[in-house]
Amino acid sequence: MTAVPLSILDLAPVPSGSDAGSALRNSIDLARRAESFGYNRYWVAEHHFTDGVASAAPAVLIGLIAAATDRIRVGSGAVQVGHQTALSIVESFGLLDAVFPGRLDLGLGRSGQRRTEALAAIGGAAKPRQAPRTESRVVDGLLIPPPFDFTSIVASPRWSLQADLQQQPGAQSPDFAEVVDDIRALTAGTYARDGIDVHVTPGEGAKTELWILGSSAGQSAQVAGERGLPFAANYHVSPATVLEAVGHYRSAFRPSEVLDRPYVLVSADVVVAPTTSEARELATPYGHWVHSIRSGRGAIPFPTPAEARATPLTAQQQALVQDRLDTQFVGTPAEVAEHLSILRAATDADELLVTTITHDHADRVRSFELLARHWFV
């Protein structure tokens, strides 16, 4: 099987004992190295209210990374549109494209709508759903675990307060499809309302590549397909629903001026080291880190393996993160590449996006380098 392009998703993780400034400098350094290793894209995430992740403002970090690199595409994975207007997004990425023309990817994700839908489900306002799967299954060699229920996190008072702080008082998140259409129109210079046209500088005519990110067979996949846009599916965030997500996107796809056929990118969490045992050692804290997110606290600074072993997860805590542990690809370059090849085949992905978190920056750089050397042969 011919290797597909390989790209990187970076959360700018903050290791225990470190700080945000060091994490961001590490991300810039990793992007430089990723370019030399042969990676196709370097995307940064958007996360808020976490001690362990420093990528709170994607457009700012993208600008720093683009300035430090020459060729690699740089983008967002993803800008959460519920926190910003279409205009502010187009202007921010238009400014970046004006300085770094043709290198920018604008990945969009839903945010505010997810909370509304989850609260409706809790209150019984949502349509009845089928009972979720409780057993893992294997599809074409790929492990598909039972789905994780995020409603308890979204409905927590802490999450509600944080969501409120990300918007102006009284503001409501607009429909995702409308935001996507507004971004496309503002970029194309075709936006008009009530007979009045508006034009945006910078932003209009920008050569940014528009992507939609999604974790399920929901609106994101539908919007990406109907508008003929590339779609990024999150195996690393929601491994239980990746097949439904890409399937729904493909079934909804309509050719556009952007694509004549569907284009799917799929993400995975990986840790690569020279030996399997060393890779497993580096991945030891991963369960603790995921648990901090799923318990509603927000991502903690990534522990050292020794710190993780000193406070082992309880059986209940382990169960909360088991799906993520089971679907993290950990091992030698050949072992991880084999897992990625299975993921690619099962999803028929056109490109893969890998994310890696280790405590030491040098181990993270080495993980990406070892994988690239094996993959790009």
Rank of each mutant, 00 (worst) to 15 (best):
S220R: 01
A171L: 06
P262E: 09
Q316M: 08
S18W: 00
V272T: 01
D363W: 01
V272A: 04
P274K: 02
S22M: 02
T347A: 00
V154W: 14
N40H: 14
G205M: 04
E307F: 04
P333S: 04
L370Q: 04
I183T: 02
E369M: 03
V321N: 07
D175Y: 04
D182P: 01
P13Y: 06
V271R: 07
R110L: 07
A20V: 07
I144R: 06
I300M: 15
F176G: 12
T190A: 09
G228Y: 06
R364A: 05
A34Y: 11
T2Q: 13
T116F: 12
A20I: 01
I212N: 06
A362T: 14
S256W: 11
G38V: 02
V258L: 07
G102I: 13
D197N: 13
S156R: 01
E278I: 08
Y39C: 03
A283M: 00
V14N: 05
A224N: 05
G225C: 09
A362R: 14
A185F: 06
Y286C: 03
R373P: 00
G123L: 10
T358C: 13
G52E: 06
S27N: 00
G124A: 11
A68K: 05
A319G: 13
P301E: 06
T314E: 07
F176N: 12
A54I: 10
T356S: 12
A171Y: 08
I72D: 10
I300T: 14
R73F: 06
G170P: 04
S7D: 11
Q80S: 14
I89S: 11
T151E: 11
S156E: 02
L165E: 14
R366P: 00
G195W: 05
G77V: 10
P147S: 09
D326I: 06
I196K: 12
I28W: 03
Q318Y: 13
D164L: 10
